[in-house]
């Protein structure tokens, strides 16, 4: 997941919306762990479009 730190407002909306509980917001930094299954829900919901799915390797 690519986080645009210039846009992210640290609102935690993606954290609470994540179906796999893969997102963490501590110290004003968003982190994604390996439970992320690339469903893209957080990308769609972010109110300021701060998230982008990385191209699959």
């Amino acid at each position: 997941m690519i986080v645009d730190v210039n846009k992210c407002l640290h609102c935690g909306g993606c954290v609470g919306s994540c179906p796999t509980n893969a997102i963490f917001l501590n110290d004003f930094v968003l982190e994604f762990n390996n439970r992320c299954n690339r469903c893209g829900r957080c990308v769609k919901l972010c109110p300021v479009h701060a998230l982008t799915l990385e191209a699959k390797q």
């Binding site: 935690g12 954290v15 609470g16 919306s17 179906p19 509980n21 963490f24 917001l25 919901l45």
Partner: peptide, 21 residues
Amino acid sequence: GYESQVGRWAGIETKLALNDI
């Protein structure tokens, strides 16, 4: 709050449907 992670770590499902967000 909305993040509601503690409950999930403890095994309580707090996952939301998209229309409930």
